[in-house]
Simulated scan of single mutants.
Amino acid sequence: MRPGPAAGPRAAGPSRDGAVDSRRLPLYAAGEIDVPFVVRGSAEIIPRDTFWEEHSHPTHELLWNQRGASSATIGARVWTITPAVGLWLPAGTRHSGWTPAGTWHRAAQFGVHAVPPISDGPVAMEVTPLLRLLLDRLDADDLTRDARSRTEAMVLDLLTPARHELILRIPESPLLAPIAAAVREDPADATTLAVWAARLGVSTRTITRAFRSETGLGFSQWLATARMQHAVAMLAREEEIDEVAACVGYHSASAFGAAFRRITGLSPGRFRSEIQ
């Protein structure tokens, strides 16, 4: 997640000892460092489950994966990052990240002096095969100045917000925090809205209004999105679709597949084939 030369990563498997690496990077304001490049890429196969502590870059950043799924957290929002859907972070945006072992992590830094504003804040981006090829081309050492300029211009032209994104806002109020914690701990938790209301001593309407106010989603939609974020991580680990469905609270693979398609735009099988 820091500007650096592209590397040819070597294969790595999941952490066998359960250890988690923590990486600490600096906090930079937008444009604090005057970089000499327009676009500069980096690549790494992550050897262990890795937590990236909150940091920010002087450059704009595009995150995506060549293989696997990861996440980035900005404030109370958690974004899922895959080979097909990346995340654009304007320069100076504070964010943390989680990258499971074996993920082929990719990033591109964009100089603020050369790139017009794409968005005021983080936005999910389409990472098409053509965009990936062009970004890879920029890593070549033998590009002429004109060829590099043309390629950079095409990259900028292809930066397009994604049609589907997997983003979850985590409610932080004392009322909703127990619900969010229970679902994130066990996505198959089947506690109904009525049961939660009874436990918390409020009406179901109060919980519904609070979810809509804090997350922009109703409880059922928020729950489905939280489950799909968990499902994506399991599919990236090559777990069976039936097992994933059960682990995230669906009684059949077909019901899970329909919910997954509504949120991601892809079937679980198609999604898994794209992230491997």
Rank of each mutant, 00 (worst) to 15 (best):
R137A: 13
L175N: 06
P116V: 12
G102L: 01
A84M: 01
S203F: 15
P5S: 07
M234Y: 14
R16V: 03
Y250G: 13
F256V: 13
P14H: 01
T191P: 01
R261T: 15
V35H: 01
V123C: 09
P178I: 03
I81L: 03
D157L: 07
A177D: 09
S213G: 03
R209Q: 05
R212T: 08
M234C: 09
G121P: 05
D136C: 07
S213W: 01
M125S: 09
A197W: 10
G13C: 05
A197S: 13
P5F: 06
H230L: 04
W104G: 08
A101C: 06
R272W: 00
I241Y: 14
H164F: 14
I275L: 10
P9M: 06
H164A: 10
R270C: 00
P174T: 11
S149E: 15
R137E: 11
V38T: 09
V183F: 11
N65E: 04
A114D: 07
L87P: 13
R262D: 15
R10M: 10
G75R: 00
T264A: 08
A7Q: 08
G218P: 15
G31M: 00
A114Y: 07
A210N: 05
V78N: 10
R150Q: 14
P100S: 01
P187G: 06
G68Y: 03
I241D: 14
A107C: 04
S70V: 02
A236Y: 06
S71T: 12
A140D: 02
A91F: 06
L135W: 02
S252H: 13
D189N: 15
P14D: 02
L166R: 00
A43L: 00
T144I: 12
D141Y: 14
I167W: 12
P171I: 09
A188W: 06
R209T: 10
R67Y: 01
A245W: 09
E126T: 15
A197R: 09
N65G: 03
A30I: 04
R261K: 13
G201S: 12
T204K: 06
P117Q: 11
L175F: 09
R10P: 03
I46E: 03
A198E: 15
V232D: 06
E238G: 12
L223E: 10
P178R: 13
I74E: 08
L131H: 09
L134M: 07
F271R: 03
L27V: 09
L135Y: 01
P117W: 07
S70I: 02
T192F: 11
T225C: 13
A224N: 13
A245Y: 08
L135A: 02
A233S: 14
V183N: 06
T215Y: 15
T264H: 13
A69V: 15
L87K: 02
F110N: 02
S15E: 04
A226I: 05
G257R: 08
G269N: 02
